[in-house]
Simulated assay, not measured.
Amino acid sequence: MEKGFKNIALFFAVTAAIVLIGFFPTYLSHFPYFEGFVALHHFHGFVMALWLVVLIVQPILINKRKYQWHRMIGKFSYVLVPIIVISMALVYQRSFVISVAENGTDHIKSLSMLFLPLTDILPFTVFYLLAIIYRKKVANHLRFMISTAIVVGSAGIVRICMVWLGMDFVGAMYANAVLMILVLVGLVLYDLYHKKLSENKSFVVALLVLGIPNLLLMYVPYTAWWQSFAEGIVKAMN
C-alpha cells in the first residue's frame, strides 16, 4: 500500500463516524421501537453499515498481510454491493411515493427528486465497478474505494447540515455537493503534489463522475425537459 494511504482505515472510520452522527437524531435515537420506520429502512441501514465495516477492515488486512482474508471479503462484496444499490433505489422510490401521497409535496418538486439517484447511486456504482476492474492495480483500486466512501459519507453530511446546522433539504444537498467536490479536488491536488497524477488519474475520474451530476443538481431537476423525462419515468413505474 502507498505510504501516503497507509492509515486509510482511519479515513474510513471517520467516514463511519460522520454517518453515525448524521443518522443519530433521525434514525438511531429511535431505538428500540423505531416508530415510523419500515423493514426497508433497517435493511438499508444494515447493508450500508456493512459496507463501511468492509472499507475499514480491508486496508487493515492488507497492512497485516492477511491477503487471503482480504480477497475473501472482496469476493463477498460482489454480492453485497448489488444489494446495496438495490436498497438505495428502493429507499428513493419509497421517499418519492411518500412525498407525493403523504407529505403533499407539489408535483414539480416531487419530479425533481428523481434526479437524486444520479448524485449518489450512479457514482457509487461506477466507483465500485472501477475498483473491481482495477483490483490488480492497487493504487487505482484504493482510490476508487476511497471514492465510494465519500459517496456513503455524503448521506451523513446531508443530515448533519439539516439536523445540526438547521439547513433545509435543498441547501443541505448543495452544501454536501460542494463539500464532496472539494474533498476530491483536495485528493487530486494531493496526487499532483506527490507526483502521482501523471500515472494515476483515478481521483480525476472520480471528480468528474461525482462532480458533474452534483453540480447539475443545482439546475437540471427543475428544467422542463427533466420534468418531462421524470414524468415518463413515473408513468412507467405505474
Rank of each mutant, 00 (worst) to 15 (best):
Gln93Ala: 13
Gly156Arg: 00
Pro117Met: 03
Met167Gly: 01
Asp120Asn: 09
Val97Asn: 06
Gln93Leu: 11
Leu111Gly: 01
Thr148Gly: 10
Phe127Gln: 03
Leu116Cys: 00
Asp168Arg: 13
Asp106Glu: 14
Leu111Trp: 02
Ile150Ala: 11
Ile150Asp: 04
Ala101Gln: 13
Leu90Asp: 02
Met180Glu: 11
Met162Trp: 05
Ala131Val: 09
Val163Pro: 10
Val185Ser: 08
Met145Val: 14
Val158Lys: 07
Trp164Cys: 00
Tyr128His: 02
Val170Pro: 08
Tyr174Asn: 10
Phe115Ile: 08
Leu90Arg: 01
Met180Arg: 07
Asn140Ser: 08
Lys109Cys: 07
Phe115Ala: 05
Leu187Gln: 11
Gly153Leu: 15
Val126His: 03
Ile121Leu: 12
Pro117Asn: 06
Met180Val: 07
Leu116Ile: 15
Phe115Tyr: 10
Leu187Gly: 03
Ile121Trp: 04
Val158Ile: 15
Lys137Phe: 01
Val152Gln: 06
Leu187Pro: 06
Lys137Gln: 05
Asp106Asn: 14
Val185Thr: 07
Leu187Arg: 06
Leu114Asp: 04
Arg94Thr: 06
Asp106Ala: 06
Ala139Glu: 13
Val158Gly: 03
Met113Cys: 02
Gly166Trp: 08
Met180His: 07
Phe124Asn: 08
Ser95Met: 14
Ala131Thr: 06
Phe115Gln: 05
Val152Asp: 03
Leu182His: 14
Asp168His: 15
Met173Gln: 04
Ala155Tyr: 02
Phe144His: 06
